[in-house]
């Protein structure tokens, strides 16, 4: 699904991304972890063609994201509030996203139905614009609009941040169930428990480089905790 080769990005002489080779297969659930400044979000932005690579390229389904835009048809993402349109109400925003996917009104309503639990009655019919929601609720709107697109590849940056505990648990369950249907998932998180719970494969970043690439087993969480405890 994702192929990255010799990818490099430098800001004022400081390398923020340097990946020699990374392959991600369809259906994998990848957790990207690392301390602040490790390059997680930069990598996500480069996969989404939001940042120009200094060297190398990102291939999605063997096509360079910078040259071919086909990836937009099967990729959904939510990195931060910048992805939302603040002056729309959630309903209008979902409607806009749905129209891009060619979904009918009925399909949209059905789709939103799935997220009733996550929304917890705080998102729809509130008569507010997205910009007036709390960070956590904005996060919910962004994540659900990404889920709604029924993507083959889903990219979420710290999806559990700012969410209340109930929603974290519901979201985890939802992501796991999606994985069963063959979704490729790429998330980052600072919460080692969540990542090891949801993901099968953990990629550990430090200063823009991949320093561990682990298939999850019963020792993974311990190993990660040891790494970060240093």
């Amino acid at each position: 699904m994702i192929q990255i080769q010799q990818l490099r990005k430098t800001y004022t002489g400081k390398t923020v991304i340097q990946i020699e080779d990374l392959q991600i297969n369809a259906g994998e659930t990848i957790g990207v972890i690392g301390n602040n400044g490790a390059g997680k979000t930069t990598l996500f932005r480069m996969i989404l063609d939001l940042i120009r690579a200094d060297q190398g390229q990102v291939l999605l389904k063997e096509k360079s994201v910078a040259e071919d835009q086909e990836w937009k048809n099967y990729t959904a993402s939510y990195l931060d509030e910048g992805f939302l349109i603040g002056y729309l109400s959630p309903e209008e925003y979902f409607d806009f996203i749905a129209s891009l996917q060619g979904m009918s009104k009925k399909q949209l309503t059905d789709s939103l139905q799935q997220y009733t639990e996550i929304f917890n009655g705080e998102i729809l019919d509130t008569g507010k614009f997205i910009r007036d929601f709390s960070k956590g609720n904005q996060n919910k709107i962004g994540i659900c609009s990404a889920l709604m697109q029924k993507p083959e590849l889903l990219i979420l940056d710290e999806p559990f941040a700012n969410l209340d505990p109930s929603t974290q648990i519901r979201l985890k369950a939802h992501l796991k169930s999606l994985n069963a249907t063959g979704l490729t998932l790429l998330i980052s998180s600072h919460d080692l428990n969540h990542v090891t719970d949801v993901c099968d494969r953990i990629i550990l970043f430090e200063k823009g480089r991949i320093i561990r690439d682990l298939q999850k087993d019963e020792h993974t969480l311990r190993e990660l905790e040891n790494y970060f405890a240093l």
Binding site: D49, L50, K72, G82, F83, I85
Partner: peptide, 8 residues
Amino acid sequence: VPYLHLRI
């Protein structure tokens, strides 16, 4: 920005 990552 809000449009760049979408199916547009």
